[in-house]
Design a protein around this nucleic acid. Sequence first.
RNA 1: GUGGAUGUGCCGGAGUGGUCAAACGGGAAGGACUCAAGAUCCUUUAGCUUAUGCUUACCUAGGUUCGAAUCCUAGCAUCCACACCA
Length: 820
Amino acid sequence: MDEFNFSKIEKKWQKRWEKEKTFEVKEDPKKKKFYSLEMFPYPSGSGLHMGHALNYTIGDIFARFKIMNGFNVLHPMGYDALGLPAENAAIKAGTPPQDYTKNSTKSFTSQMKSLGFSYDWSRLLDTSDPGYYRWDQWIFLKMLEAGLAYQKESLVNWCPDCRTVLANEQVHDGKCWRHEGTHVKMKLLKQWFLKITDYADELLDKIDDLDWPEKTKQMQKHWIGKRYGTEIDFLINGKKWPVFTTRPDTVYGVTFVVVSPYHGKLNNLVTKEHRKEVDEFLKKLKSISEKEIVLLEKEGVFTGSYAINPLTKEKVPIYIGNFVVADYGSGMVMAVPAHDQRDYEFAKKYRIKIKIVIDPVDFELNEKNLAEAYVGDGTLVNSGEFNHLENNKAKEVIGEFLTKKDLGRKSVQFRLKDWGISRQRYWGTPIPVIHCEKCGAVPVSEKDLPVKLPREVKFGEGNPLLTNKKWINVVCPKCGGKGHRETDTMDTFANSSWYFLRYCDPKNNKKIFDEKKIQYWSPVDIYIGGAEHACMHLIYSRFYVKFLRDLGLIDFDEPAKRLFHQGLIHGEDGEKMSKSKGNVVDPLLTSKKYGVDSLRFFLVSVASPDKDFDWSEKGIQGSYRFIKKIYHYFEGFKSGENSKELDFNMNEVIREVSEEIENFDYRKATIRLREIFETILKEGKVRKKIAEDFLKLLSPFCPHITEELWEKLGRNDLISISKWPEYTKIQVGKKADEDINKKIIKNVSLVVKKFEDRGDRISKIHLYLVPSDFEEINPEKIKKGIGKEVFAYSVRDKKKHDPEGRSKKARPGMPGIWFE
RNA sequence: GUGGAUGUGCCGGAGUGGUCAAACGGGAAGGACUCAAGAUCCUUUAGCUUAUGCUUACCUAGGUUCGAAUCCUAGCAUCCACACCA
């Protein structure tokens, strides 16, 4: 018996796939395409981790399954190579990010190749390649033309560690998404924005059509956060200041107005007498991180100004409040302490008047027994001409009234904000704009793209691009005068927002991509990656696709039809894998120890791929044993006749495994494979067809040993591109036919016995069968089997005798029963 | 607070109205082989017991049903995401 030398086998087949370009694909109108994509990795210097291995194994199994099912499968890979970590790591290592990244991507590629993934490596993409980011810049110019890219002075999230601005989506819990311990600060900067909000409605509406995990869809909906409400103009110093509210019905209960400390026109509201207090308050706020503000008590300070309620004409004080969000609505809210908990707390603290305007109807509410805000429904009181209206009705009525008098208007607010893409760092796509004193921000002309990142820069303090004067100082393309380049680079999420389109035509240097190629391959049929991207990458990509569609470049609306999130792998201790905890398991080392196929098989057999699970060394040993067993069995394979039962089982397994892979129930599929293999082992000799089918079913999971054993069975083609076994219906039909009568006899007898044991007398039995069962049963047989008078009906039969409606309980294999 | 998910045997984890003491894997125990270890193979793994028997079991408490791990109601617990959005 040969020693099971998995590493020799792996290399042998990986070489052959590469040599024969097994997984390279071209458009072929005669073949149905399938685009299978996994989120491309950020090529960190530490190489592939187990999470990558899981992600790509899940995708690879799917892609291989589709290939064997006759699809023309596009299964590409690339690198999201631009970004801060590479820059930081490069600085640390003292090498330019270009070199650092090249090393990383090289090692990623060789690692991925060694794991046997079925990628079309000829389409390899690298976002740090000017040939790629040139098209980032091109899209930017198109957005600029369309008015979707713009510059504005704004308060931004600033991470002191990254020394750059972060998008809202990159701030988690008031902290930087890359630095768990770093609080994000607010800073005022001139920034480039992409007007994703123009697409807010469509981004929201189309969510329902996506075959995506419900959770992710929910998160996106929440993130976009569409709210219907009313804008009410309060009068301050003779000027109209709009305030957004979802509760116009409570407008008579407004006793103060609160403005955000970050409101742009805050200074207009602060009177001389209150300047000092306000400044102190603002100063105090600055020293507190956003995270802490959330935990903080509602606090505020009086500005000295008053606002006039347009309906009551009452004058109410204006406060600055730490709980008001600056860039939602107008950054100013009307406060109704009787009917909003936050306002209530604030009013109590600063002893502001509380006025009840909604009467709960079923109990009495007065200022004295009010221990918290009453947010329920009721009828309006103290509301002038609107008294006695039901409050939900009042929302409408007051809204209309305000509109008619031009004191307000219906309004829709989104939580989603425009996407700030400016980053003050080096390793990103340069924003293709030249600033000119005369002409302002002038776009670089398309023919001058790409604006390449200069190698000659100094890293250290601030933005490295500022250190290359030669690169910065250029002539204005418009007037020929003095100009300087924009030194902000784009958020890396710009790079990843459309990469999946570029895979369809990765080397095109004339166009972003060829329309015909895009039309053939896109959109992505299955997209696999982490759930953490739900509100970042997965929203941005949707936005980009819609924009490119509106440019007329593509004719679909959504980047990916179907989405799947893999689970997280924890260390053996159940904790998240991390270097500091020392519980990291390296996929490469593991594959060297047990073989790639064992690793792949194990990764998808411990748990459903979308569930989190703990790494287990014992577990992978179990997978290894299984694979070894298979290897040894096939090595000495001798065909022979096998039982009918095995034929039947195999046929079932083909059906089940196919369905299970399609539904990402990989774990169940591996169980099926184990079971059927046990049966094969027990029988010893089986027909060659059975052996081949088994190897084919196993092939997406364990591509290397199945190639090897396929060869051992005397085949010289590749199993990886062989035809997936077919499931035959006839055979099962026969078998099921025999079963169904027995099954029904058994089940019904059981119930009959129970009834008779209780002392019930049964003379007649009425059975109500689902139509498919009804067609297959043999009533005589059942009658004999049960030994009573039996009447069988189809549930569809309108003339059936069914006084108690038992036919409703009928299910396949188990009829509804009624006794007489 | 809001939204989502989950709760099954020693552990991981299937199942989803009758065939369920509950697949499969891991662990453990016993046995075979071996001088021995490893590998491999077989058996057992809720309790009483060895009977095609009973009892206790699928978070808890109720309910529906001839019958529930599976359906309904309430509660408890855990995990994740978002979180002062007016």
